[in-house]
Design a protein around this nucleic acid. Sequence first.
DNA 1: CGGCATCCTTAGGGATACTG
DNA 2: CAGTATCCCTAAGGATGCCG
Lengths: 165, 165
Amino acid sequence: MAERDLMSDRRAWSMANCSIAAALDVVGGRSALLLLREASFGTRRFADFAARAGLSEPVAAKWLKLLVASQVLARRTYREPGQRAREEYLLTDKGRDLVPVLLALRQWGDRYAASADGTPLISRHRDCGAEVHAVLRCERGHEAGLRELEMTPGPGLIRLPSMTG
Amino acid sequence: MAERDLMSDRRAWSMANCSIAAALDVVGGRSALLLLREASFGTRRFADFAARAGLSEPVAAKWLKLLVASQVLARRTYREPGQRAREEYLLTDKGRDLVPVLLALRQWGDRYAASADGTPLISRHRDCGAEVHAVLRCERGHEAGLRELEMTPGPGLIRLPSMTG
DNA sequence: CGGCATCCTTAGGGATACTG
DNA sequence: CAGTATCCCTAAGGATGCCG
């Protein structure tokens, strides 16, 4: 029965070689990302997650549970003064570290896939009010252009091959 | 027959309000991101895309076609001296602008979902060799922490709600 | 309000075999 | 090498209804 060994599973191969695949196994689904978008916008309650992410409640329930299991969200019971107890879902530190992914996605969507209606959201730096973008920066403080990357270890890629090389 | 009007479609609601959803409709699938990862690493040929992304050929063919249709990849015929003509897939400018998304995802995966085996890839700045990360930076040049964001227009969120507030 | 159970439909994806 | 065609299986997701 163990004939289906690890390497016969294409996914296993892929996972063993790149953490992008590993990340996608946790937050790779459209629904998961939409729920995390909502969490990053401040949504806390179950019904709001479902409605704002545009998901049916069974689906929202399933993915919220998975995200809690992955420790990207945490579920907590809270009570506002004079109110009854409610459940809330909050980003953990692990979940908050996905904000750059969401912001990078949103930037790209605004530029290339924006719908005609719908005002684009803008993220601002709280201290100065200026717009915030996801950028590539090296540890010496240089901002790196998309063509100024090389990878190591690996194929020794020097520049991203592209149409406009 | 038009009773299923636009707003009865949950996806339409979601798309009309956030470009993250729009972006996810183009590159939201696991397979699409894995193929784009390969493209960003320098993979050019069909069989290599399928093998390295860990996808069957029919699936790779389907998604490559969709990515070309979305103008994220471009397909081109080329011929190396003395060789027969081959097909290659290259990132377009639109596709290269997804690199921050891929890098942010990889960063997160390296930190939280890395597999034990498998050496993490490192992106370096070509000019100085220092490691490159995806960071949030405001237009005045400040690096913004994950808790220093606010969104506008919208709910007027001041800080990301989280466990460690 | 915050879900879960059920049922159903569709989309994604693998295996295999085949073509230019 | 670069796909396509066929078949089949599974995962994802919506609708409805029910429960603590």
